[in-house]
Design a protein around this nucleic acid. Structure first.
Lengths: 338, 338
DNA sequence: TGGAATTGATAAACCGGTATAGCTCCCGAA
DNA sequence: TTCGGGAGCTATACCGGTTTATCAATTCCA
């Protein structure tokens, strides 16, 4: 038999389709003996549920979606998404729920995808990344009544469930470390200004500056590209009172910055300390290897998956789960200023 | 109305469900006038097909799968997959078919996924990457009768459809360039020996060596990791008659190799020329920037999607499509030997 | 002009599950 | 002894589409 259905199992077990359904889904309605027998037969016939049939009957598709709205060009460089994806999948696989991944160009396209997914019943819920200030996706998803979890930012006024890390504490751990080394001129090459986490990091630095006695602590926003990271670094290092330490919001920009420093004859870590806000193999491949903030991205994804499943099961309660703080991995690119 | 069904449309148009189905799918059975009217009503009610219902009735799910069997750790570094994915999606989006992505640890797990997908009817076909010699997945997929397309290697004895690049020509373009510069000692830091493309590259180099008058042209296999890339480079550069040029099978290994050279005081490109077999932002971030072989990975993915859709539509004919040859992007890491 | 073929539509079966109303036992309490 | 009630199971409707058998009305052609 090509592909057994529950009807086949029912015939073989001498019971009704309904009884088989009850047995296979572990719900009351059949005796333990019958259940046992049915399960054994299903196993023998190597039965597997037909996802579409189940989706149609139970109005859930056992599938969640994730849309990444970034040009593909800037994507693959960062291990961040690969780790995140793996984590999400590991969180989903326990319930054998599948993941639909889509890479699109911008937020408008992303919202279009959500609309389509909702109307075609293709996913039970979605995972959001790269939350911006006043993010239009939040309202859209609420309107579509599509369960969602936000990664890396709070859902905003209790709107969506979220899994978030404390960017503020993370930034503090970096600058406190640099200040302890003796740095007083610290610059911050930040990411896109409309990202929530960019804002939080900028604010954290600004707030901490007086307490740590920082002379100057500018945050300069970029588009996260290596080109802008390099350009800003060049500008910073050309100043008369140049910073003795630079914090980069991504590993790619940090690497680009390191390149600029070397080009300009600024020795790292002698004349300049460099810290990356994200860790990856990139930071380790460099000479000197870069001090970086490492977080457990895999676990991040796993938790997001868990929270999403909870949200799907019970859309009423909104979970906001905080993940462990990232830790600073000190390597060769940081030292006391000369 | 929350979500219109074709029954709703049928009522409103004063026709039967069947007529609506015919009209919406552009098949004969309704007059042009009626079709027009039905389409307009569907549009007005913003109807979208319920994917599960359609899947159940038409026994196709409008979804294809792709499994990547690599530890997540080694994944995100290479933009390769991000570009490939984007390309695949762009090829699929024309037919609004969705993509299921799964990252697993090894081939055994990958095959398990195929079995599950097949039995649960979750995908109409799959895209295979990283083909090995005597790849067990090929036979498995044929047994499951799951349409598939192989990326970057021929399906083997006309088994599976494929989209492939000519690794042989690619390797030749690199070594001929190096030979023209005057290099006679060229080493090749290859990838995993069981990958088909690794084998093809090794063979291409070996075959070309006599013709180009190469004194020595060893190929050394690795696990694609930066660690092994660095270790092998160290070994090569410690030899008394060390190579004047090294070709790396991946950009990550090339970067690691560059680091080793700098560490050992071997100047690049003065004492050593370096070529990477894959291009990415990584190679451009380095100092010196690395000469690398660039291919249009996005287009690669797009073509794979197209071929897969053809294969799903007509499983009988096996397409083997060759993609344009990659081109060598010369940067600062190559020069004539001293 | 009459029978065959074609067109345009309908009703109903079907895909493979889930959910529910209802039926039959059997047990315990009144 | 009877009746209420729960356990165990069956029959059937249902989810939202697709597909097929059927049929009436029209067109075609000899």
């Amino acid at each position: 038999m090509a592909r057994p259905t529950i009807a086949d199992i029912a015939t073989r077990a001498g019971v009704s389709k309904g009884a088989v359904s009850f047995a296979l889904n572990g719900r009351p309605g059949v005796s333990d003996a019958t259940r046992e027998r049915i399960l054994k037969i299903a196993e023998q016939m190597s039965w597997r549920p037909h996802s579409a049939a189940r989706a149609l009957g139970a109005s859930r598709v056992d599938s969640v979606g994730m849309v990444i709205a970034r040009p593909a060009r800037t994507l693959g460089v960062e291990p961040f998404f690969a780790h995140l994806l793996s984590g999400v999948q590991s969180g989903l696989s326990a319930e054998s729920i599948s993941l639909q991944l889509l890479i699109v160009e911008d937020t408008a396209a992303e919202i279009e995808v959500y609309r389509r997914w909702a109307s075609e019943h293709r996913v039970d819920g979605v995972i959001l990344v790269d939350l911006t200030v006043k993010d239009p996706r939040v309202d859209e998803l609420k309107a579509l009544e599509l369960p969602a979890v936000v990664i890396g930012g709070r859902g905003g006024k209790g709107a969506l469930a979220s899994v978030w890390a404390d960017d503020r504490d993370a930034m503090l751990s970096i600058v406190e470390y640099l200040a302890a080394l003796g740095h007083r001129r610290i610059a911050h090459v930040a990411g896109t200004p409309n990202f929530q986490h960019t804002q939080r990091r900028i604010r954290a630095l600004r707030d901490a500056a007086p307490r740590l006695g920082l002379v100057d602590a500018p945050s300069l926003t970029t588009d996260f590209s290596d080109a802008e990271g390099a350009a800003i670094t060049r500008k910073l290092l050309s100043q008369s009172d140049r910073p003795t330490a630079i914090v980069y919001d991504s590993d790619v920009m940090a690497v680009a910055g390191l390149g600029v420093a070397m080009e300009m004859g600024v020795s790292v870590p002698g004349d300049l300390s460099i810290v990356a806000f994200d860790d990856s193999i990139l930071t380790q491949l460099m000479h000197p290897a870069l001090t970086a903030l490492s977080r457990d991205t895999f676990d991040f994804g796993r938790q997001a998956a868990e929270v999403l499943l909870e949200t799907i099961a019970d859309p009423a309660t909104v979970v906001n789960r905080r993940t462990p703080d990232p830790v600073l991995t000190v390597r060769e690119s940081t030292a006391p200023p000369r």
